[in-house]
Amino acid sequence: MIKRPLSYRLKLFLIAVAALIGGYFAGHYFARPDLKNLSAVMMPKPIPVQPFELTDFNGKRFDAGRLKGHWSFVFFGYTHCPDVCPTTLSELARVFNRLADDPALQQNTEFVFVSVDPKRDTPEQLKTFVHYFNPGFLAATGDDEQLTRFAKQLFVVYQRDDANGGDDYDVAHSANISLIDPDGNFVAAFKGVHDPKRIAADFKQIVKYWNWSHDNFF
């Protein structure tokens, strides 16, 4: 059988088909990832966290600079809280476990518990409390001025009912979990009843989106 060279038209056609297929995959590869079915509330644009100064359980300064270079989940509460705080910390520990399939991301994600009860939550108390949930979790606190300075940026409010001076009081506080990106920007909040599976899934989507934005605009 004699091999015939492909006709000019057929060559052109094949090139066009290849270009279409290639374009389709390239488009997918470079396209902005979708943020689908998020339970998280995304900030309309990233909000840079302004200076504040707390102290972590090791006595080290915990400030806006400490939020840079990695992702942070930040949750406000207190250790005498029986329901919302242990529930949320246990959920965050499960979010951490769910990141095991992306070890680099898991390593690059910090979980911070901010106590709004500095009177009872000593550094030792905080360390024992959060390390029970995960030995890598961090906790910090400070005076009301500094706590408020940080909290209000994340739309978190709290109210301590300790006016009568005793040691038995409750602290009402927002139960949002805030997500801060590696540039130190507040990017998303998780509200209401938290589901570790959804938080982890949302977080992975947000990270993918964030990485895409960085690759394409910076």
Binding site: T79, H80, C81, P82, D83, P86, S90, T128, F129, V130
Partner: peptide
């Protein structure tokens, strides 16, 4: 009852 940290004074 949710198991609590060793130093928790309040459980639920």
């Amino acid at each position: 009852i949710r198991e609590a940290p060793p130093n928790a004074r309040v459980l639920a």
